[in-house]
Design a binder for these strands. Sequence first.
DNA 1: AATGAATGAGTTTTCATTCAT
DNA 2: GATGAATGAAAACTCATTCAT
Lengths: 195, 195, 195, 195
Amino acid sequence: MPKVGMEPVRRQALISAVIDAIHERGLSHVTMGEIARRAGVSAGLAHHYFGNKDQLLLATMRHLLSELGDEIQQRLAGAETARERIRAIVAGNFSACQFRPAVISAWLAFYVEAQTDAEAHRLLRIYQRRLESNLLHALQELVSRNQAVDIAEMAAALIDGLWIRRSLAGEQPDPESAVAVVETAIFGAISRYHA
Amino acid sequence: MPKVGMEPVRRQALISAVIDAIHERGLSHVTMGEIARRAGVSAGLAHHYFGNKDQLLLATMRHLLSELGDEIQQRLAGAETARERIRAIVAGNFSACQFRPAVISAWLAFYVEAQTDAEAHRLLRIYQRRLESNLLHALQELVSRNQAVDIAEMAAALIDGLWIRRSLAGEQPDPESAVAVVETAIFGAISRYHA
Amino acid sequence: MPKVGMEPVRRQALISAVIDAIHERGLSHVTMGEIARRAGVSAGLAHHYFGNKDQLLLATMRHLLSELGDEIQQRLAGAETARERIRAIVAGNFSACQFRPAVISAWLAFYVEAQTDAEAHRLLRIYQRRLESNLLHALQELVSRNQAVDIAEMAAALIDGLWIRRSLAGEQPDPESAVAVVETAIFGAISRYHA
Amino acid sequence: MPKVGMEPVRRQALISAVIDAIHERGLSHVTMGEIARRAGVSAGLAHHYFGNKDQLLLATMRHLLSELGDEIQQRLAGAETARERIRAIVAGNFSACQFRPAVISAWLAFYVEAQTDAEAHRLLRIYQRRLESNLLHALQELVSRNQAVDIAEMAAALIDGLWIRRSLAGEQPDPESAVAVVETAIFGAISRYHA
DNA sequence: AATGAATGAGTTTTCATTCAT
DNA sequence: GATGAATGAAAACTCATTCAT
């Protein structure tokens, strides 16, 4: 039953299937066959649209990165003060659509993949630099440049660390408390410098 | 030319080979053949000693966990005050033998594997609980129990986050500055509660 | 935008695409998708017109055979003496439209295909018999029947051999010198028998 | 039942299987599975020893080229006069072990493969150049350099052409008459130049 | 103890072909 | 008439694992 205009639908279904499959089986055990089955299409179609497994995986990673970017950008748009911008960045990183178990699993998997895969590495670095740069700009309005650098690094590491630990804990992820931990650490550090 | 008493040597060589192979190829691309080649033995021997690939991987993970445990235990032995114990735990996590690029890669890989592999998950949780428990005990001498729980979580996440980010940065890992970041965050939080 | 009367145009475009594709990728690597792409149509249309891949390939072969036949027939029409008829046959085999690199590649590929494909074999044998029979008739006016048979075989082999070698040489094919080599061999053999 | 020292045996069996499979199915229809089956081993083993299909095919081609080279070299060793050397080269090209139907099919297939495969092309050109060079040296003792060049080209083309036509004819190949045709053409041409 | 030979199951990938639109 | 969606079967290739030696 071929219909026209199905390409974007199938692409999205396949990317979602990748995320779910990684969550349940782990990236190293995911097969094209399983992804296709979850997406309700044949393995051939997955290749037809993405060329090969690596490309499909990278497309999924790009999807996640872009979703996260949008999430943060949206929140930044409504932020006026430096404190609000910092909150926007932190909250964006733990936004509902990103902090779902399956998405967390996929993120982690790609994080690790980026250790050895050049393209995955490149994609992740771009996101990381942007995150740090955003944080840095906001922080520099509150503390000196050197202090901002230190706090930004700490905050970025804390965000990643909370992600990884919450995911491993297996409990229902709790975005709000995660946000609170990071904000406490950031604003605590800022007030320390101000004292 | 089989020699007697080679077993521990071979086992260690294979475990080291796993770590290096994960670092260079990524866990999902590591094969028994490559591990064996790196260890300078035949693939058959790897099976002879470890039974199968999963067991070899888990043995490697156990090796890393035990090494980290020893590292922290050693430092704790010489620590007398609560502050010193906290410093011992943090420093142990970034000790030279652990904070090598190849070891970091392997840790990350196992972290992710633990998402979907029951035994890996169990091993990792044991280590995490011990780490948190150690931290908690030390912190409770300085702050209230509730405050200690919050700080311990933050500290643990920060340690993991620094690991993961430093590894991805590709630069030579710098244990001392990592330790400094974590200690600053911990003692900053403590002093905040005291104020 | 389907147009009426496009069928012969599409068919010819597909056949030309087959020849070019064989030249650039080799028959064993040619796919329907690539042929269709080169012809500027969808893969579905290629099937619509030719039924399946084998039929399209055979249609291409028939096209080449018929083109070669026409080429020779045209030249034979203007030939009066036996020597002229021999020259017509030889020259026809190296005529410009046949001795193009892409066409040579396709010919060779079909030659080989004919080893194992019954229909291709049949088509090629028809052409070969006609070529030999034409040559034989002309030669028999100049030498005895037995001598004519020998010379015809030699000439036919020489034609094929020059084709195959020129094609592999990769140089710009030079029909005239090829013709000269064959004619020298034929007329040399004839004069030898006459001596 | 693994035995040591099987590698050369398996390699040879696989190469022979390639030749037979090409003869019966045609290069474009040959699969690794069929080759392995004919060789009496698993498809995995074929990959184990040759890496991939292309490499196995090229190894087969190298095998044929080297066998042909040996055949000619042997005959050349016993030749003293220029005429004998020419006969050695021609006879070597139609030697029993080369002029078997299956071997002929394989040769043709590789000839065509060389049109589009760089490595196959390289291998074939080396053989062709050596053949022409050998012929040229022998011929230059009997005729002028220019005449030798012409005769060598004609002879080489005739050899290839006879191969291709005899193979297509499907009859039992007849080395002796093929040799006779080539020698008649060569020595006829020489005597023509001498006249 | 140790190896290399060998396999078979599983995975990716390709591609001719079909079919609704 | 023409397309793009979709499939399924077949092919290449990988690799953990077994086993005779």
